[in-house]
């Protein structure tokens, strides 16, 4: 069998308490013995309410945080090994790029194209090659015409696309989006989501999208729900969203149509299939049911 691209083995994480002492004091764990495998090229949405540990998980993947227990493998290589050198760490960070929540706090330069060049420059890429990568990355996110602009002239969605371009220019194999759409307006959200989907489908980049927006999670091939530091649901969007009751108990919403159909089903209308996720098909189904009542 092919090696999983990313593999977490019994990973736990807790912050150390600030107090000095002979024994390291740990705060209550944020992640509890997580076991997870992520396939190359997949699009995984990670859902959870604030404080569920979903962002911590992201930071572990590119070694911004280090697991308290357990191992993380990237392409079969143990990246939590003690013998990892600084250079090894940077290899991991190049392979797994990160896009954060606040678009303002991740752009470094005063000109868009200079910012996109920042990553490749740090990697020591040849100048002519950086130029090519920057142009290509900006084209991929549809921001070429803004390359000479200053970040503060851009909208939130545009800034976030520039941040994405900055990561693509490092030629990553996987990008983790840590609530990258949370601060955007609906238009910005759509721009960024479309970009993310395209990166996954066309460039084959593995995507981990951390969010609490259900409609966004629908666009993934796999949804993982994290609650209190544990994986509580894992499956296709359809499988996960059929657990309406469980989603509610972990503090997540389901789409309105799913909620409606779920309520109907629990009222005894057994023909209702609330796991259907396509709006049109749902309407078709419900219209049929309403009409067929006549025939009974």
């Amino acid at each position: 069998m092919e090696k999983p691209f990313i593999k977490l083995e019994d990973v736990s994480f807790s912050y150390e308490s600030g107090e000095e002492g002979p024994v390291k004091m740990l705060l209550p764990p944020i992640l509890k013995r997580i076991n997870l495998e992520i396939a190359r090229g997949s699009f995984v949405a990670i859902l959870g309410h604030n404080g569920s540990g979903k962002s911590t998980l992201a930071k572990l993947l590119n070694l911004i945080l280090f697991p308290t227990e357990g191992k993380i493998y990237l392409d079969g290589k143990d990246i939590t090994d003690e013998n990892m050198t600084e250079d090894d760490v940077y290899v991991v960070r190049r392979k797994i790029g990160m896009v954060f929540q606040n678009p303002d706090n991740q752009l470094v330069a005063t000109v868009v194209e200079e910012d996109v060049a920042f990553g490749p420059e740090n990697l020591g890429v040849e100048p002519a090659e950086i130029r090519r990568r920057v142009d290509r990355a900006l084209e991929t996110v549809g921001m070429s015409e803004f390359k000479k602009h200053s970040p503060h002239q851009l909208s939130g969605g545009q800034k976030q696309r520039v941040a994405i371009a900055g990561i693509i220019a490092m030629l990553p194999e996987c990008i983790v989006f840590d609530e990258s759409t949370a601060m955007l307006d609906p238009k910005g959200r759509k721009e960024v989501m479309d970009t993310i989907v395209r990166l996954n489908r066309e460039k084959g980049i593995t995507v981990l999208h951390i969010t609490h927006n259900m409609e966004e999670a629908f666009r993934a091939d796999r949804v993982i729900v994290i609650s209190d530091g544990e994986i509580s649901l894992d499956g296709t969007p359809r499988e996960v969203f059929s657990n309406v009751g469980k989603l509610r108990t972990v503090g997540l919403d389901v789409p309105q149509v799913t909620e409606l159909l779920y309520e109907l089903k629990s009222m005894g209308y057994d023909e209702v299939d609330y796991t259907e996720t396509d709006e049109e098909k749902c309407a078709e189904m419900l219209a049929e049911i309403i009409k067929s009542q006549k025939g009974r």
Binding site: L260, E279, C282, A283, E284, I290, K291
Partner: peptide, 18 residues
């Protein structure tokens, strides 16, 4: 802008003769 998903859904139902 748009309308809530449920409003859109009810329109889809109407379009299907409900």
């Amino acid at each position: 802008l748009g309308v809530p998903q449920i409003t859109r859904f009810m329109r889809l139902l109407r379009e299907r003769g409900v």
